[in-house]
Amino acid sequence: MSVLIVIPARYESSRYPGKPLAVLRGASGEAKSLIERSWNAAIAVNGIDKVVVATDDVRIKDAAEAFGAEVVMTSSKCRNGTERCAEAHDNLGGGYDIVVNLQGDAPLTPAWFVEDLVKGLQADPTAEVATPVLRCDGRALNGFLEDRMAGRVGGTTAVFTRDHHALYFSKEVVPFTSEVYADEAETPVFHHVGVYAYRPSALGAYPLWPAGPLEQLEGLEQLRFMEHGRPVLCVEVEARARQFWELNNPEDVPKLEAMMAEMGTP
């Protein structure tokens, strides 16, 4: 099966304008933009046929091409990363069996997250979309709860059936738990990792559907598939002692830099 990774990136953002060009310093002190670190995460994945950055902004295009990325220009009318991936796939002429959306705000995504995701979609013929979920330890869950108490949007959580088909995704912490967990303790909460693998039929249909009320309320693009009756597979992945966090707010920059320093990420 041929696999395409698309890294959707837009400059305009209500929460964090210019986010793809935000600079992160690794353990060595080397400064690289968020889009370059996301590109490096994508090209580290095994079994991928092509990687492209999809954007509508010439500043991102110029920055990406400067470090050697292939760029596909897309419309400014794309409402989210999934629509941008659909347009990029079309602009490339289609033909891929699986399209992966590796969002440009998750540079700490380990290669095996994406590899396991692709394998999961290949193994479940009933699923049209797949996305990784990572069981939270107490440290991660406490971070989610602190963000919500401070009025910040932190990570997204997921709940799913026994066969791992998604029931719901939320920016709130679900399911509710009143228990207090130690940092290393296992919790019942799953962190949704912002990566998607699509079958082209579902990806091509997506931009034609109106956004439903749940997608609009939560601001979560994957809910559109569920609101239109398309099954979403949650593929559980393992951290393997790696920390994971998305860059959602400017306040997350020092958090990611601290994680990179702790893990020795250059």
Results as ranks from 00 to 15, higher is better:
residue 242 R to N: 13
residue 162 R to P: 06
residue 62 D to Q: 13
residue 170 S to Q: 02
residue 177 T to Y: 00
residue 83 E to V: 01
residue 138 G to K: 00
residue 10 R to M: 09
residue 194 G to A: 15
residue 84 R to E: 09
residue 184 E to N: 15
residue 88 A to H: 03
residue 54 A to K: 03
residue 79 R to M: 07
residue 244 F to K: 04
residue 136 C to Y: 02
residue 83 E to S: 00
residue 64 A to W: 11
residue 22 A to V: 09
residue 167 L to V: 14
residue 141 L to Y: 02
residue 41 A to Q: 01
residue 254 P to L: 04
residue 68 G to C: 13
residue 112 W to A: 08
residue 13 S to L: 10
residue 200 P to R: 02
residue 75 S to V: 09
residue 136 C to H: 05
residue 148 R to I: 03
residue 94 G to W: 07
residue 166 A to R: 02
residue 164 H to V: 09
residue 104 G to N: 13
residue 202 A to K: 08
residue 184 E to G: 13
residue 159 V to I: 12
residue 239 A to D: 10
residue 82 T to G: 11
residue 134 L to T: 02
residue 153 V to P: 05
residue 31 A to K: 03
residue 246 E to T: 14
residue 194 G to Y: 13
residue 213 P to V: 13
residue 186 E to V: 07
residue 108 L to N: 01
residue 155 G to H: 02
residue 41 A to S: 08
residue 218 E to S: 01
residue 26 G to Y: 09
residue 140 A to L: 15
residue 109 T to M: 12
residue 222 Q to N: 15
residue 77 K to S: 13
residue 51 V to C: 05
residue 113 F to G: 04
residue 205 A to D: 14
residue 120 G to V: 01
residue 248 N to W: 10
residue 34 L to N: 11
residue 196 Y to Q: 06
residue 71 V to E: 07
residue 9 A to Q: 04
residue 178 S to L: 14
residue 163 D to Y: 04
residue 4 L to E: 00
residue 97 D to W: 14
residue 243 Q to C: 15
residue 237 V to H: 05
residue 87 E to Y: 04
residue 49 D to G: 13
residue 71 V to C: 05
residue 146 E to Q: 15
residue 129 V to R: 12
residue 234 C to A: 07
residue 151 G to P: 04
residue 178 S to R: 14
residue 213 P to E: 15
residue 207 P to D: 10
residue 152 R to G: 05
residue 111 A to R: 09
residue 18 G to F: 12
residue 78 C to N: 08
residue 199 R to K: 11
residue 81 G to N: 03
residue 156 T to S: 11
residue 31 A to F: 11
residue 263 M to F: 06
residue 68 G to Q: 07
residue 227 E to P: 05
residue 175 P to H: 03
residue 167 L to W: 14
residue 14 S to K: 10
residue 115 E to Q: 07
residue 49 D to R: 11
residue 148 R to M: 11
residue 4 L to F: 10
residue 207 P to S: 01
residue 217 L to N: 14
residue 82 T to Y: 12
residue 118 V to L: 06
residue 208 L to F: 12
residue 119 K to Y: 09
residue 211 A to T: 07
residue 176 F to C: 11
residue 253 V to I: 13
residue 32 K to N: 12
residue 243 Q to Y: 15
residue 155 G to M: 09
residue 234 C to R: 05
residue 88 A to I: 02
residue 147 D to W: 06
residue 59 R to S: 08
residue 235 V to T: 06
residue 215 E to N: 02
residue 208 L to V: 06
residue 193 V to M: 06
residue 137 D to L: 13
residue 27 A to P: 08
residue 130 A to R: 05
residue 75 S to C: 04
residue 187 T to D: 12
residue 107 P to Q: 00
residue 70 E to D: 11
residue 230 R to P: 08
residue 263 M to V: 05
residue 84 R to P: 02
residue 214 L to W: 14
residue 15 R to P: 06
residue 168 Y to W: 14
residue 99 V to N: 06
residue 83 E to Q: 01
residue 74 T to Q: 03
residue 16 Y to A: 09
residue 155 G to F: 03
residue 150 A to K: 15
residue 7 I to C: 09
residue 108 L to R: 00
residue 171 K to R: 15
residue 266 P to R: 02
residue 260 M to D: 07
residue 175 P to L: 01
residue 79 R to P: 05
residue 148 R to F: 07
residue 95 G to N: 01
residue 197 A to V: 00
residue 209 W to N: 11
residue 61 K to I: 08
residue 102 L to G: 01
residue 228 H to E: 10
residue 108 L to H: 03
residue 256 L to P: 02
residue 213 P to C: 12
residue 96 Y to S: 04
residue 72 V to C: 10
residue 258 A to T: 12
residue 114 V to E: 06
residue 180 V to S: 14
residue 17 P to L: 00
